[in-house]
Nucleic acid binder design. Structure first.
Lengths: 251, 251
DNA sequence: CGCTATTTTGAAAGGGCTCAAGAGTAGTGG
DNA sequence: CCACTACTCTTGAGCCCTTTCAAAATAGCG
């Protein structure tokens, strides 16, 4: 149920760790690294929210299971990301390792003490939480308006543009998660995800690097991919447009 | 852009105000009441997050406008709810009054000062934020798995069970928002919302109280409504079920 | 009482889901 | 090295639910 086995993975610190959360990171840096294999659980929905985690390497999936057994993945977390800050008494979702993952944990009590002692951490906490809410909202937008192709393109864009990647890494995407994960995250079936990938390949937008690596995707036309994601970030002209509700049909 | 006119609505304090946020409320109680008409804006996405608000009466809609002009309502806020806590530098979404609404505001600076001075407020802040994230996740679940009927039933259930309502108020639901609002919130078209309501009426689950009031809905069979919402809260047996991913089909 | 905005209803079309089978990939052991 | 098994992923065909487009009905308001 909790991280059990500490198998002896090489505990090398990812050089491309992180960035955006300078000071918070220091809280974790002295903690021992814990290693997880793909599929191992970090905590479950409803568990007492005793710890705050930071991912050193790898990827986690956050998900809930609903009554009929279906799984909804509400997000993925990657190296550098922090997990568990926003939990009140109990965790709101299940967390598992997508692939081999290294993380560090501190007790919530200690975490909060350190934060309250160091005034410049306060805004960073808020920043982390704010990001989490922003991500949730983007996901709501995706789920309520985007079609299959837009969803997959959005996913690939976001994954390839996540923090702490080199230019090269951005064009050659090594997806750690399987099709079912992607499907459960994007609110579609595995079949539709697969079909959509095939369509993107046929269009020459991405290419599957079938060389032995598990799932390497080469983004051939990053700009087109971004366009197909349909975010069109030129959307801050809301206050100019005479926004008629239900303007462009569809919903 | 900001709340402009202070029209002289009777500033009576809703007796059924709130509850869950005892101490935070005190921060707002001395502030002057501001009155908004239906449709008036509180703030826009991207505005500097200068204030924190509490709703005294009425309802707000939180929404974003995407590139093609469509509107996604990410949430509604009601009497007693607090708005703007989770914003970092700038607000993440637009906020408008759904109906006549009364609210109070405090400057973020002051708000944060008061909070940091009073240690028992800290957990309440976290609680508010945690609720916001929980709501966002429930919405993701709704958008990625539920069909039209389940969505509408979920909406009615949540609205009728929101905090601070008497037993009577729970069975006689006065929806302040229009069909288009509901559609944009549930990720469906106004036509489908309408059709779904009709179906629920034909099934005898709800009844429209057409007496002069704007939109009064009588919930005839609350239990059935809750069942049709499909949340089946007996879902905390996750750790027992051998959860096979992609268990019950559909996604 | 007419005008407009909102809501409801109808018929047709489409996109993604479902069910089912095939192709590819890994891991195992003879 | 290659069969054998177990998975994951891909492809195909039909169907169903929601959307779309269009029009009628109802409510709101001067």
């Amino acid at each position: 149920m909790q991280i059990s086995d500490e198998l002896g993975l090489p505990a090398r610190q990812s050089a491309s760790t992180v960035h955006h959360i300078r000071w918070l990171e220091d809280i974790f840096s002295n903690q021992p690294a814990e290693h997880l294999l793909a599929g191992q659980s970090v905590f479950l929905e409803g568990d007492e929210a005793e710890y705050v985690f930071q991912i050193s390497e790898g990827a986690l999936r956050l998900f809930r299971i609903i009554a009929d057994g279906r799984r909804i993945i509400t997000g993925f977390l990657y190296a550098g990301d922090i997990l568990g800050i926003s939990a009140r008494g109990r965790y709101l979702y299940n967390v598992e390792a997508v692939s081999r993952t290294t993380l560090r944990r501190v007790r919530r009590k200690r975490f909060e003490r350190v934060v309250s002692e160091n005034s410049r951490l306060q805004p960073e906490i808020l920043s982390v939480i704010s990001d989490e809410i922003a991500a949730a909202q983007e996901q709501m937008v995706l789920l309520s308006t985007k079609n299959a192709e837009e969803r997959v393109c959005t996913f690939l864009c976001k994954f390839s543009n996540r923090h702490g990647l080199t230019e090269q890494q951005m064009r050659r995407v090594d997806l750690p998660m399987c099709r079912q994960d992607i499907a459960d995250y994007l609110g579609m079936t595995i079949e539709t995800v697969s079909r959509t990938f095939t369509r993107l390949i046929n269009k020459g937008i991405v290419r599957i690097e079938n060389a032995f690596a598990r799932q390497a995707i080469l983004i051939e036309k990053p700009l087109l991919l971004a366009q197909l994601a349909g975010d069109d970030d030129d959307c801050f002209d809301v206050r100019e447009k005479s926004v008629v509700h239900g303007g462009g049909r569809r919903h």
